[in-house]
């Protein structure tokens, strides 16, 4: 297959994916000026260019019988599910159902909290991240995470925020390579045009939505295979939310994405797969249903899923 053929095929895939997302969305900013639209189009092209360089880079993540505790509190029980490569999987459910806890188990962030414990297997590329001799630090380099509240490092410049992960573990790159990575990652996070003239300014000087995209840039700068997002839009306004959702649609070409969200419309807009979790009377969260997003939202198999998505509780 020639390069141009391959590029053509990938572009087609991306466009199909995009149309799908755009259809389900229906919340594009209403009043955009021609200049803004032109810039948006340019930005989209840039994101695509970045993505195309490593399309299909994600790997699947398989959770088998995951249990998690906070001290003696059993938070989630026997959750098994698959996050398919280069697809977006949404975790939905009412507060306290353990969806964020489960997400944090996926890159060994749960155990960072005092007294927190995990049992079960999580396989990336066939290897158990909780296996013997596995270094949690290495795991997190392959499975990145974007948090609920944008958390750029306020004492670092925008530039340094992006390369913060690259400076770790003795990775030494030349200045020119660093510059390249910064531009590449910021373009990939659809932030380059807004910040390219102020890379030396503090990361805290940006708006909330820009900060969250900076955090996405920081995450993809270390080139993980999987990106976990814990309610990434819950602290953002609708326009910023729209931008991030659009970005998720692009990023999945390169990464496997798992996203926790409280917002069911968001799940239906961005996710290929959706899983519904619920904490029963026993207090621990369990997986109720998992399937294609359309199926979960149009023909839920479980009564509890139906009750939740139709707004009967939660």
């Amino acid at each position: 297959m020639s390069t141009s053929e391959r590029r053509g095929r990938e572009t087609a895939t991306i466009e199909t994916a995009q149309t799908g997302i755009a259809d389900g969305r229906g919340m594009a900013p209403a009043s955009a000026s021609p200049a803004e639209m032109a810039q948006a189009a340019q930005e989209k092209a840039q994101v695509r260019e970045v993505i195309e360089q490593k399309a299909g880079g994600g790997v699947s993540l398989v959770a088998e019988g995951v249990n998690a505790w906070y001290g003696s509190t059993h938070a989630i029980k026997d959750v098994s599910m698959t996050f398919r490569a280069n697809e977006v999987t949404a975790l939905i459910g009412p507060s306290g159902c353990g969806k964020s806890t489960f997400l944090r188990c996926l890159n060994r962030m749960h155990e960072v909290l005092a007294g927190a414990r995990v049992e079960g297997k999580i396989l990336i590329d066939g290897q158990d991240i909780y296996g013997k001799g596995v270094d949690s630090v290495r795991v997190r380099r392959h499975i990145g995470m974007v948090f609920q509240k944008p958390n750029p490092f306020p004492m670092m410049s925008i530039y340094d925020n992006v390369i913060a992960g690259l400076k770790l573990n003795g990775i030494r790159k030349r200045k020119s390579e660093m510059d390249e990575t910064v531009e590449h990652s910021l373009r990939g996070a659809a932030l380059w045009n807004e910040v390219k003239d102020k890379l030396k300014e503090s990361g805290a000087s940006l708006s909330g939505g820009q900060q969250q995209r900076l955090c996405i840039a920081r995450t993809i700068a270390v080139e993980p295979e999987v990106v976990l997002m814990d309610e990434p839009c819950s602290a953002l306004d609708p326009i910023s939310t729209y931008k991030i959702e659009e970005l998720i649609g692009e990023l999945k070409q390169k990464y496997t994405i798992a996203i926790v969200t409280h917002n069911m419309q968001q799940a239906s807009r961005v996710a290929d797969w959706t899983s519904f979790m619920l904490a029963g009377d026993a207090g621990y969260g369990q997986l109720v249903e998992y399937g294609r997003t359309e199926q979960i939202f149009t023909q839920p198999q479980d009564k509890r899923t139906e009750d939740y998505i139709t707004g009967r509780f939660g």
Binding site: F153, P154, A164, G165, V222
Partner: peptide, 25 residues
């Protein structure tokens, strides 16, 4: 804690987290 976790999630060791996120802050 979000600063600490932000650094850990990038693949920082504990010392790198202290050096990169805790002490500057």
């Amino acid at each position: 804690g979000t600063q600490r976790e932000g650094m850990l999630a990038l693949g920082a060791t504990k010392w790198e987290m202290i050096k990169g996120a805790v002490l500057p802050y």
